[in-house]
Deep mutational scan, measured.
Amino acid sequence: VEPFVCAQCRTDFTPHWKQEKNGKILCEQCMTSNQKKALKA
């Protein structure tokens, strides 16, 4: 199985991968920080 790479921070290690609607693969940490930024905006 090919390891995923986060589209935002380029890490290849995370407990959980998330896929955005646009198809980008993000690590759990980037997904969480993006959600917090969206709530602040």
Rank of each mutant, 00 (worst) to 15 (best):
V5E: 04
L39A: 07
T14A: 05
T11L: 13
G23S: 07
P15A: 09
K36E: 07
K18P: 05
Q29K: 11
K36A: 08
G23C: 06
K24R: 10
W17N: 15
K18D: 07
E20D: 01
K21P: 13
Q29H: 14
F13S: 05
K21H: 15
Q19F: 05
N34K: 03
R10C: 15
C27W: 00
N22F: 02
T11A: 08
N34T: 04
K18E: 12
C9A: 01
G23L: 12
E2P: 03
V5P: 03
K24M: 07
N22E: 14
F4Y: 06
L39S: 11
T14P: 12
K24W: 03
S33Y: 13
L39C: 07
E28L: 05
Q8M: 15
K37P: 12
F4D: 13
Q35D: 07
E20W: 02
C6V: 00
P15I: 05
C9L: 00
Q29G: 05
P3D: 01
Q19P: 12
K36V: 03
D12Y: 09
K18S: 10
K40E: 11
K21M: 08
M31Q: 11
E28H: 08
E2C: 07
Q35M: 05
Q35L: 02
T32Q: 05
L39R: 09
C30E: 00
N34L: 02
Q19W: 11
Q19H: 06
F13I: 15
C27Y: 01
E28S: 09
I25T: 08
A41L: 13
D12L: 04
P3C: 14
Q19V: 13
K36G: 09
N34M: 02
K18I: 03
E20F: 00
K24S: 04
Q35F: 01
K36W: 03
Q19A: 12
F13V: 14
E20T: 02
Q8P: 02
C9V: 01
C9D: 03
K40P: 13
C6T: 14
E28Y: 05
D12F: 06
F13D: 04
K36M: 07
L39F: 01
P3E: 13
Q35T: 10
A7L: 05
S33R: 06
A41E: 09
R10Y: 15
V5A: 12
K36Q: 12
T14F: 08
Q29C: 01
T14G: 02
K18T: 05
M31P: 00
Q19S: 08
P3S: 14
E28G: 08
C6R: 00
N22P: 10
E28M: 05
E2T: 11
W17Q: 15
I25F: 06
Q8N: 15
I25Y: 03
W17Y: 15
A41T: 06
N34F: 04
K24N: 04
Q35V: 02
C6G: 00
K21C: 10
E2L: 01
C6M: 00
V5T: 10
Q35E: 10
L26C: 08
E20Q: 03
L26N: 01
K40D: 13
S33V: 07
P3K: 06
I25C: 04
E2W: 01
L26W: 07
P3H: 13
T14D: 02
H16Q: 06
N22L: 04
A38C: 05
C6S: 00
L39H: 07
C9Y: 00
T11W: 06
S33H: 12
C9W: 00
G23T: 10
K37Y: 06
C27P: 00
P15R: 05
M31V: 07
M31K: 08
C27F: 03
K18A: 06
A41R: 08
Q35S: 07
A38P: 01
Q29A: 05
Q35K: 06
F4K: 06
N22D: 10
N22M: 11
E2G: 03
A7R: 11
K36S: 07
E20S: 06
Q35I: 02
K21Q: 13
P3W: 04
L39V: 11
R10E: 13
K21L: 07
N22C: 14
I25V: 02
P15E: 07
K37H: 05
K21W: 10
T32L: 02
E20G: 09
W17P: 06
A38R: 05
R10F: 15
L26K: 04
I25H: 14
R10N: 09
F4T: 06
V5Q: 12
C30M: 00
I25W: 03
N34W: 01
V1K: 13
E28Q: 04
V5F: 03
Q19N: 12
T32D: 03
K36D: 04
T32R: 06
E2H: 13
K36N: 12
N22V: 13
L26P: 06
H16F: 09
V1M: 13
P3V: 08
R10H: 15
N22Q: 12
K36C: 03
V5L: 13
W17E: 13
E28N: 10
A38W: 02
R10V: 15
C9P: 08
L26H: 12
H16E: 08
K18W: 04
T11F: 03
F4Q: 09
P15W: 02
T11Y: 01
Q8A: 15
K21V: 09
K40T: 11
K37D: 04
Q29F: 05
C27R: 00
E28R: 02
M31A: 08
T14N: 05
F13H: 03
L26A: 01
K40C: 06
S33W: 02
V5D: 01
E2M: 09
K24Q: 12
E2F: 07
C30Q: 00
D12A: 11
S33L: 05
L26I: 09
Q35W: 01
R10D: 10
S33A: 08
F4N: 14
D12V: 14
Q29V: 02
K24C: 04
V1N: 05
T11Q: 14
F13P: 11
A41V: 12
E2Y: 06
W17L: 11
E28P: 05
S33I: 08
T14I: 03
V5M: 09
C27G: 00
N34E: 12
P15T: 11
W17C: 12
M31E: 09
Q8K: 15
C27H: 10
N34Y: 03
G23W: 02
G23R: 10
G23V: 11
V1G: 10
H16Y: 09
T11C: 13
N34I: 07
V1D: 09
I25G: 03
E2R: 01
F13E: 09
K37A: 10
N22Y: 13
H16A: 07
M31L: 03
K24A: 07
Q35C: 04
A38S: 11
A7P: 07
I25M: 07
K37C: 03
T32F: 06
T32E: 05
M31C: 01
Q19T: 02
T14V: 12
C27V: 00
I25R: 05
A41K: 07
Q8D: 15
A7G: 14
C27M: 00
A7T: 13
P15N: 01
C9N: 00
Q8E: 15
K24E: 13
C9T: 04
K40V: 06
S33T: 09
I25E: 06
F4R: 05
P15F: 02
F4S: 05
Q29I: 05
W17S: 12
K40Q: 04
H16T: 11
T32A: 08
Q29W: 03
Q19G: 14
E28W: 03
L39Q: 03
T11R: 12
G23K: 13
C27E: 02
H16R: 08
C6E: 00
K40W: 02
A41G: 10
K18L: 04
T32K: 10
K40A: 09
H16D: 10
T11M: 14
P3R: 12
C27Q: 00
F4I: 12
Q8I: 14
M31G: 10
C6A: 00
E28K: 08
Q8G: 15
T14L: 08
F13L: 05
P3T: 08
E28I: 01
C6L: 00
C9G: 03
Q8C: 15
Q8V: 15
A7V: 14
L39Y: 15
H16M: 07
L26F: 10
G23D: 14
